[in-house]
Design a protein around this nucleic acid. Structure first.
Lengths: 358, 358
DNA sequence: CTGAAAGCGCTTACAG
DNA sequence: CTGAAAGCGCTTACAG
């Protein structure tokens, strides 16, 4: 054919915009317009180009797009740890949301300590067009200042502080926790305990407050609502964190403190499933029956909560949808979007049901 | 200064090889040599270039490197699901191994069904220099054929089939399971049950066989070793999979079958922690005490195994190290490396200890 | 051991 | 609505 576009060892032998254009009788520039979905194209031209792309099995070279267009088509998950129960679901949600929008998900770990002390190293070579920042990193001021200074796009997930500072995605924890309070009341419980989450964490405040308010509205005597903190939780302020199995261990002393009260609670709500599972384990090791002697509920609807005996009552946030919104805010743009609080769902299982035998 | 390299809106205002070279008194080509660690550079030149890179806060533009060099500096994790307990640790290991070698980790989900039926869509736009393929994907022939056909580099993790087909990383499950068998024998158990893993899975074969062999060597009567399969496990052959909480649920019927035997086992080893946790939960819901009435052990050392009551005896594979080796085989090259079996560790906890009261 | 030239495959900034 | 030219920042393929 005497082609003046000899196929070198480039791009795995793939066609280029130039070659697609030649087949379609247009310039490479117009193929580029089609790739990027630019509107000003005659419908017939569009069809011809699409046909040519299909015929040549064309895939745009992402490195070239990245170089010329100064964007990477990568989105990056910035997280302090990979051990939380919800991590797998966060990654699953982000992976799918990215795939649906022709983006790739990159994972970057950043210890909370580093986010507080020396975040610059982390983003020396920013390799993403946008960042999804999980708690507690999304409440580390030095990291946020760095992101702002570098002009990087980011979305925070359930940030504790300064909700208007950046795009953010929330779940409506309050409604779920109030429903849980009501559920426990309806079962006949009258004395309640709460194991609070990491201090300074927005979700900690919301869940603790909602639980108390829900109980008070149901008619619980304020003297019968006890709150304790598990020792050594993640603390955004000083960069220390306790996670995974360490978190469950720390629930033991918290449960002990609640049981040591003069009028101990018969129902307990823990900030998250790890703490709840730890509380269940401690109760069982003390010879108590759950829920017969004490009911326990968590938050997150982690897989494992459904696996243990008794299965854990918990609250589910729609993480898949929330991650989809986070990605959409990064890819499509955030302008003018209101902050949305995704609805959560109470999952009643046998760690609270049926009502206690007393 | 009258620079002939005006700083346009490129690369976030970063310096280029050209500018670094000018400061160091060499060409951009030589800067490129430094970036890529090419050996043939005079030490003094090397020093000057490094100083210039530091002075200009130079970071190479990865998109340009990718375009010209025809590689992406991305590695990709190919996995059928993100819900296994060990997933978080796999990702953690890969993330760190990639960061240490200046690579980025991309996550790509591929349902087993798709790997068996239409893997081509998955890799239409290969965006990585190498792939880490987890079970059960690493035993899906159509996916492997596609990877081979496209000439893509990949490392399989504990593949079931054809261990020599590609670079692969293994753990020495056999040694761990034999140690477990011995541990149970030493506790005084004489009748044993095993809940097997997904059929066709290499790890299933190894763990089942090693458990039986270990018991026989200890002196157990073959008639007192029972093996059952949990229904509906992941099956590479037909693309169906059952994971996470579904896996734990399926352990219930398996335990029932073992307990229904004329001489039921007093100690059970399950293929993985999910199955073991499900078996513990079922035993407890039947009113049995673990380990008093029946001892249960798993495999994986998942976080959750340590959180439940009783804490789960299990076997830990060094996933972090294994992922490091996988990445190293992709980045540095695999030529001439022998297959290594990473040592595993028996973690004795209270789901088997102390010995049963009978 | 080092460099000048060319080009990877796109998109930008114009022009018509 | 479409195109010719230039160039993003590197590395390849030479040359010396």
């Amino acid at each position: 054919m005497g082609s003046d576009f000899p196929t070198k060892a480039r791009h795995g032998g793939k066609a280029t915009v130039h070659e697609v254009g030649r087949l379609a009788g247009v310039s490479g520039r117009t193929v580029s317009r089609v790739i990027n979905g630019e509107p000003s194209i005659r419908p017939e031209t569009l069809e011809r180009v699409k046909a040519a792309m299909a015929a040549l099995d064309f895939e745009p070279n992402m490195a070239a797009r990245a170089l010329r267009g100064a964007r990477s088509f990568n989105l990056c998950l910035l997280t302090a740890h990979l051990s939380h129960f919800y991590f797998a679901e966060v990654v699953r949600g982000l992976t799918r949301a990215c795939a649906a929008r022709d983006r790739r998900l990159i994972i970057q770990e950043c210890p909370l300590r580093q986010a507080m002390l020396a975040p610059a190293d982390l983003l020396r070579r920013p390799n993403a067009d946008g960042y999804v920042v999980l708690p507690p990193l999304c409440d580390a001021p030095p990291l946020l200042e760095l992101l702002d200074r570098l002009g990087l796009d980011y979305v925070r997930i359930a940030p504790a502080t300064d909700p208007g500072r950046s795009p953010a995605v929330f779940s409506d924890d309050e409604a779920g926790v109030r429903a849980l309070a009501r559920h426990l009341w309806d079962l006949g419980h009258r004395r309640f305990g709460h194991i609070a989450g990491p201090p300074g964490h927005h979700a900690t405040l919301v869940r603790s407050r909602s639980f108390t308010e829900g109980l008070l509205e149901a008619g619980v005597d304020p003297a019968d609502i006890a709150q304790v903190e598990a020792p050594g939780l993640a603390n955004p302020a000083d960069g220390r964190a306790r996670l995974g199995r360490g978190l469950a261990e720390t629930a033991g002393p918290a449960l002990d403190a609640l049981l040591a009260r003069p009028r101990p609670p018969t129902a307990i709500f823990a900030f998250c499933d790890e703490l709840a599972i730890g509380a269940v384990a401690r109760a069982q090791s003390l010879g108590l029956s759950v829920p017969g002697d004490i009911a326990v509920a968590g938050f997150d609807d982690s897989d494992i909560g459904a696996m243990i005996h008794p299965a854990l009552t918990t609250i589910r946030a729609p993480l898949i949808e929330m991650m989809d919104e986070a990605v959409d805010r990064l890819v499509v743009g955030d302008a003018g979007r209101p902050i949305a609080h995704h609805p959560v769902e109470l999952r009643i299982r046998s760690s609270t049901n049926p009502r206690p035998s007393r």
